[in-house]
Write a protein that binds this DNA or RNA. Structure first.
Lengths: 342, 342
DNA sequence: GCACACTGCGCAACTGTTTGCACAAAAATT
DNA sequence: AATTTTTGTGCAAACAGTTGCGCAGTGTGC
């Protein structure tokens, strides 16, 4: 047990050559004789030599690893995005170190600090809902560490970003609701600090305006992600004098908890109220009624982010203009909005 | 941009002392004068010095990182277990590198190899469903690299493991079904190679036997995890001449797809057939009817695994006898098994 | 006045790998 | 035969940090 890994030195000593020669032989350097090379290859195979990645990273002053910081991996979007990142990163020879900020800015800062000192090659980040200060990102940029945002991005930092068009997605969803005859449409948004929630709010407002519907501010709620917060905000909507005919939610989880509040109030879905979620989590097609929702290309999002990051890492000498990739999302229409058109 | 991180050497040169002195001053070594220490601390703060973890890891011949290998992070159990691992590991100063085997043994082997060369401090692993050869684990043990299994373990390898009592959990579930008056009880198992599925099968069989019910082999199915496979096996059960009165499934996903097959056949749940799942995924309380299921302590499982691993890492000189931690699971009774007792 | 202890700091080795340079021997060219 | 080129190999430095040891210089005790 506890046998040390075979090193170049081990091979060199057994063969009575220098470490440098062994290193070059393994790389098939032209200046090493065929005879020496073959001896080295043979022994390396016998002793199961594998280069020590840690030593290599140290020498290159950089780990072959990418730091991935997401709010929570149990959110389906992040779990799938991580698969996309892993897929591409591994193919390019990078490991990924996944960290959860748990929606805490302090945690996010600590993670980034920790990973900087570990010399990760770059970062792929989706902001915590709390994050309202961006010093830790500008710090990355000052140090020249590659950075890509995805999904929850940071507009004040000039970095690569991969997102969907949240404005348009929510516009389309509201448009769909209007087309089924709804006019009193509510928006159950996420925390007010979450930018993408506000982008969706804008899309919602624009769609209403474009259809000649005045926005009723009482129909716009901002809730936290926990069940209790959603329920209490949803109750404000459905127990009011004029419950909405439709509700667009910021996420499927919020939509589902909103459905619970509706059922509690005795409202039938979709007859009394239509509901639209966001993310197309697998659960949405299993519940009753199946939920109309917006499918985000999580895997592709992760993969694209990884591509952008690896491009930055491998061209660290040249300055690349930050790019904004907007992926398309799809409205998946299911029973929860299945009203007869008027 | 691209400013190098401050190193001990930078501090040493500015202060005209040796690197060794700076290193010791930062560690408050008694042999360094107060004056020197203060000068070092001041400059270190000014230049934002942070020790380079990569260099430290290199020197210690080991990364301060733990390799975590799971089948898929989208499975709720693994996502929660990862949170538990991260929670404990971070508190102890370790990062975690999460990799998905995607249920492939080849991928699992490749990941382990890759992480070995990166000199991770240890591994926390849940087997892929395909894994039937354990050389890559015995190899870890020969190299003296700490290893902990959780959930899907490997009985042939003598390592720490954290599991629930799958036999008992499934026994209890079947017992519950019998207590509600069911006698024709089916088992929708996972792939035949997955050990825990077979443990649950044994619990199922024992519970039937203890209640004087003969096991009907036609009521035992082994399916893959994809929806189509589950549906086709479930149909064999429900379209037969004598559909079962109850079905115990290996996972919530399998249970839910089995429910779909039941509904398709016109069977009402729980009136015609009771269903029990496994894992208590959040979706189980949202579907109609809410699913009776077995709650596994995912977070605790991960945390315990991390504890055992860190213990191994930090006592690598002494040999610790591998330990088997069995955590308790809980049967959560919901509507899907709510029949009147006979 | 001499031995001894203590104080404050630097030297050097070590971790595994790569790579520019040097240098000898062999081969090729004058 | 003398020079140049080519070939095959080794030396040493570099990456950032830690740590045993040594070595001055100062202080203490008898």
């Amino acid at each position: 047990m506890n046998k040390r890994q075979t090193t170049l030195k081990d091979l060199a000593e057994k063969l009575n050559v220098s470490v440098a020669t062994v290193s070059r032989a393994l790389k098939d350097h032209p200046r090493i004789s065929q005879k020496t090379k073959e001896a080295v290859w043979q022994l390396a195979a016998d002793l199961d030599y594998e280069p020590n990645q840690l030593a290599l990273s140290f020498r290159n002053r950089q780990m072959n690893a990418i730091g991935v910081v997401v709010p929570k991996i149990i959110y389906h979007l992040y779990a799938t995005a991580i698969s996309g990142i892993e897929d591409y990163a591994n193919a390019q020879g990078y490991n990924i170190i996944i960290c959860q900020s748990n929606e805490s800015m302090e945690r996010e800062k600590a993670i980034i600090n920790e990973l900087i000192t570990s010399q990760v090659a770059g970062f792929i980040i989706s902001l915590s809902s709390e994050t309202n200060n961006f010093d830790h990102f500008t710090r990355l940029q000052k140090k020249g560490i590659p950075l890509v945002f995805f999904n929850r991005e940071c507009e004040d930092v000039d970095a690569d970003r991969v997102i969907i068009d949240n404005f348009q997605a929510s516009y389309d969803a509201v448009d769909h609701l209007i087309s089924t005859g709804c006019r009193r449409i509510a928006y159950m948004g996420g925390p007010a600090e979450v930018q993408i929630s506000n982008h969706r709010l804008k899309g919602y407002q624009k769609a209403l305006a474009d259809n000649g519907i005045t926005v009723d501010e009482r129909l716009v709620q901002h809730c936290e992600f926990d069940k209790e917060s959603v329920l209490s905000h949803a109750r404000r909507l459905v127990y009011g004098p004029q419950p909405p005919e439709a509700i667009l939610a910021f996420s499927d989880q919020i939509a589902i908890n909103t459905m619970i509040a509706c059922k509690e109030r005795g409202l039938k879905i979709p007859e009394d109220v239509s509901i639209v979620g966001f993310n197309n989590e697998p659960v949405t097609e299993l519940i009753e009624p199946p939920l109309t929702t917006i499918d985000q290309p999580g895997f592709l999002m992760g993969k694209t982010a990884a591509e952008l990051l690896v491009r930055q890492i491998e061209n660290s000498d040249t300055v690349i203009k930050p790019e904004k990739r907007i992926l398309s999302s799809t409205l998946i229409i299911r029973k929860s909005t299945n009203r007869n058109r008027l």
